[in-house]
Design a protein around this nucleic acid. Structure first.
Lengths: 346, 346
DNA sequence: AATGTTCATGAAAACGTTTTCAACCCGTCA
DNA sequence: TGACGGGTTGAAAACGTTTTCATGAACATT
């Protein structure tokens, strides 16, 4: 296709009008068999590829959605996007993608761009689904969207697991193994409402068990000095025997940091994650975690969006089931006889 | 913006023609200050957002690129896409994304879709850059593109590391540690020309050292029965003492499989990877690997594409530097006294 | 006072489609 | 034979922009 073959060229070559070409392209009305064939030949010969800009402009349908996630570098989002892609490919939708890096301003910018592209809908994970300028913008523009991973209190459509219940389930398992002092290492609450909700579940589970909340360490998502932060809490008189990571990436970093501190997982400290990224099962010690069905979440989000596009009302809450995945990183609480210290020498 | 505010509405409200609105929007020609302000007010009041379809159609510029990778679930690609996204955001480009799942037919389909969207260029990783229908299609359409990770023999523009040299460097380090029998676990050659090139480097390094090539295990990317395949090779009379994985995901799976076989890494068998995905540094044993600058590759690919779009000629080869990252998975060859067997009992 | 020059603006064409409307050709039915 | 109807087709409008061209006004130059 020599850089700009248009429907007009096809029409000329086939000796018909552009209307006819358009018709064989979209094929709803009846056309004479030989005409159809001539047109098809011309299309083939010229390597004609319809220009979606023209088509979309006229038809007011782009068959394109926008997907916004905090970062593709967290496998949980990459997996979800993969799910979305699969569903989109099947349904004939294209995907515009952007990452916010957990930043509200970049969320805004991305949404703005998506809207100018006339996407038919959006799937997104935002920092805070109950207080989000970009979601306000979407509401005002009356643009269909579905949140994924976010679990707002408000009426916004979302697909996720029940974060509070899931975190609670996780912590209950920790407690059941005899741990009495359980800390949490969480992604920044301001950057992740999920982190906040999981903390809520964590506290509830501990409260139910009559246990105090352990230390809470809030960390940035790409924090390289995690060991230092942890050291502070692990060298007290009564350090936690288990740490609940608000997501798998955090949990894996925690395990690494503990090892750097000379602590053994799970012999000295147990660590659990949240998300169920595939890699957690491959590492050693394997990561005990709470599995979200990431790919299914993506697919469900898209299905939900299609529903909205079809004009169906919002529908039910869309909470998907989570599961627990056991792993070597979670063991019974160590006997209290000899609390471990951070460094052998002191 | 009430679902369809157009430049015409803005013009009407501001009491000017649409040409004038367009001009303040794009702002190259001079306009009277008060006119400009009135228009700007109208835009603000109506929440007007220019429709890119119209704009792109007329201007023949979409400011959009297409990105095609085998799978976002492999962090090496996710990282690269993240790099592309950063560069795109800076340059004001939008990103259409698709995954091929290592399948040539899906590569075709994705490229076809991208072209119909009138992307200005593409960045892609294909199964085989020297024999690819989808690249042929791009060449024929005269669409600008840059390969990333692929390293074709032919004249196609690419950005990557030198796979052969990098694999060779990796294997030289293995050999330097006393390993005499080095196997390779590789992604399917048909699905990954990188895998093929790395195998080439592996063989060259062994040949240089006067060593025979060890067993080669080709695996699918989502192979769950890796342990079975490996068992076959690890239970011979003279099993390899080191395994070179063609990428980090494979290497991590190998480590896991070896553990399932009752073998210790690195005491019984050393394992190395290729890619340098972040997670490899977090796991235990940490993965010795050859680091590709994935994010930089993405950024460089986009820079290169921009160059092409600006009409600059192809330019130099674009081979980025790789580095070696040590890790616990690679140790000295075990003394040959007592070759390990797969299972304790037999 | 006549003639340029510049500046600000509007009218209209154009981008590549889809879609409405009308027209034509043919055969069928009364 | 004349009206009717279905099956095919074309002409032209429309989608929301950008851009060319033309116009008029204000101003400076002779």
């Amino acid at each position: 296709m020599a850089k700009g073959t248009t429907i007009r060229d096809v029409a000329a070559r086939a000796g018909v009008s552009i209307s006819t070409v358009s018709r064989v392209l979209n094929g709803f009305t009846s056309i004479a068999p030989d005409t159809s064939e001539r047109v098809r030949d011309a299309i083939e010969a010229l390597g004609f590829r319809p220009n979606r800009l023209g088509r979309s402009l006229k038809a007011a349908r782009t068959h394109t959605i926008g997907v916004l996630v905090p970062s593709l570098r967290n496998p949980v989002f990459a997996d979800c996007v993969a799910g979305i892609q699969i569903a989109c490919a099947v349904a004939g939708y294209s995907v515009l993608i952007a990452s916010s890096d957990y930043d509200a301003e970049r969320e805004r910018a991305a949404v703005e761009t998506f809207l100018s592209h006339q996407v038919e809908g959006l799937i997104l994970t935002v920092a805070d689904a109950d207080d989000s300028r970009c979601l306000d913008a979407l509401d005002e523009a009356e643009a269909p969207y579905v949140l994924v991973y976010n679990q707002p209190c408000g009426p916004r459509p979302f697909v996720s697991v029940d974060n509070v219940a899931a975190a609670r389930a996780m912590v209950e398992r920790i407690v059941a193994l005899g741990h009495r002092r359980v800390g949490m290492v969480a992604g920044r609450f301001l950057q992740s409402d999920r982190s906040r909700l999981r903390h809520e579940g964590y506290r509830a589970a501990l409260a139910d068990a009559g246990l105090p909340s352990g230390p809470l360490v809030e960390v940035d998502f790409a924090d390289t000095r995690l060991a230092q932060h942890l050291a502070h809490h692990m060298t007290t008189a009564d350090p936690p025997t288990a740490l609940f990571g608000s997501n798998d990436m955090v949990a894996l970093a925690v395990i690494r940091a503990l090892r750097d501190l000379g602590l053994s997982v799970p012999d000295d400290v147990s660590v659990t994650g949240f998300d169920g990224v595939e890699i957690g099962a491959l590492v050693s010690p394997s990561l005990a975690t709470l599995v979200q069905p990431s790919r299914a979440l993506g697919e469900a989000a898209f299905a939900r969006l299609l529903d909205q596009l079809a004009g169906n009302p919002a529908g039910e809450p869309s909470l998907l089931a989570f599961t627990f995945r056991p792993g070597e990183s979670l063991g019974p609480a160590p006997t209290r006889a000899q609390p471990q210290r951070g460094h052998a020498a002191c």
